[in-house]
């Protein structure tokens, strides 16, 4: 259902390659998605797929994970889905460090509804509800790390092989893993901000990204940092809860 050249298919492809490389038993995989262009991916995938309400995918997934901890759960969300309406659930899933893999398709706008501004629309850029330039945006990696996520990584749809690896590493991290996939929207955001066609936007990512490991030495102002931004193990929520309630008797 995605528009011609939309990056959502690329991120979905990356997710599928990661799943295949991890060789997980498919009956142990669940895809939970919110509402928006990217979240419709759930409807195309032959797993146990749960297409929830806007902004609430992580909360649905929290309930599912608590009673089915053996499942590998991918929570697919858009940038607005995860960080605007879903912000409260994002910061608390992160705080809890519950073993969920949040795959955020960040296309910098609300795509499904036609290109409105989101908290991830770069300041000053245009969107249908920000005709005079978008307000201040924040950085998903910083929010994730500040609220406790034990794995936070970013790639763009240009860096697909990297994205595959980051998703795989995220799954291997026992805790809240955030993988932000910057994926341009050629129809909404691309047109309004004159970014050219899909190929041009992919190449823009190539020119404007920098591996996060290199950031200390080089001024990376305005560049997109890609790679693992944070990875530090911490007790996982459901395991901790199960341990603390072990052997509780009537």
């Amino acid at each position: 259902m995605w528009c011609s050249g939309c990056g959502n298919g690329l991120v979905t492809g990356s997710l599928l390659r990661a799943i295949e490389n991890l060789d997980i038993d498919t009956s142990k995989i669940a895809i939970v998605s919110g509402i928006g262009c990217s979240s419709r991916a759930a409807g195309y995938l032959n797993f146990q797929t749960l297409h929830t309400t806007h902004g609430r995918a992580l909360a649905f997934a929290t309930g599912l994970k608590m009673v089915r901890p053996e499942l590998t759960i991918f929570v697919i969300m858009g940038d607005g889905d995860a960080m605007a309406i879903g912000g409260n659930h994002f910061i608390h899933a992160s705080r809890r460090n519950i073993d969920l893999n949040a795959i955020i398709f960040n296309n910098n706008i609300y795509g499904m509804t036609g290109g409105q501004a989101s908290p991830l629309t770069p300041q000053g850029e245009k969107a249908t509800t920000a005709p005079y330039g978008a307000e201040r945006n924040f950085d998903i990696m910083k929010v994730a790390v500040a609220t406790g996520a034990t794995f936070a990584a970013r790639a763009t749809t240009y860096h697909l092989p990297l994205l595959d690896k980051l998703i795989e590493k995220g799954v291997k991290n026992k805790g809240f893993s955030v993988v932000e996939a910057l994926t341009y929207c050629p129809v909404g955001y691309g047109k309004l901000n004159k970014k050219g066609d899909a190929t041009a936007m992919l190449n823009w990512y190539k020119e404007n990204s920098i591996p996060v490991e290199k950031c200390t030495t080089v001024d990376h102002e305005g560049k997109i940092t890609v790679g693992i931004h944070h990875h530090q193990a911490a007790p996982e929520f459901v395991e901790e809860y199960t341990r603390r309630t072990q052997g509780v008797k009537r």
Binding site: T62, G63, H92
Partner: peptide, 19 residues
């Protein structure tokens, strides 16, 4: 689980039931 708000609570209830 005590969720962050009632919206999350209702979502978690449904998620668990699906589990």
């Amino acid at each position: 689980i005590q969720m962050e708000d009632e919206i999350g609570s209702m979502a978690a209830v449904i998620g668990a039931s699906i589990g």
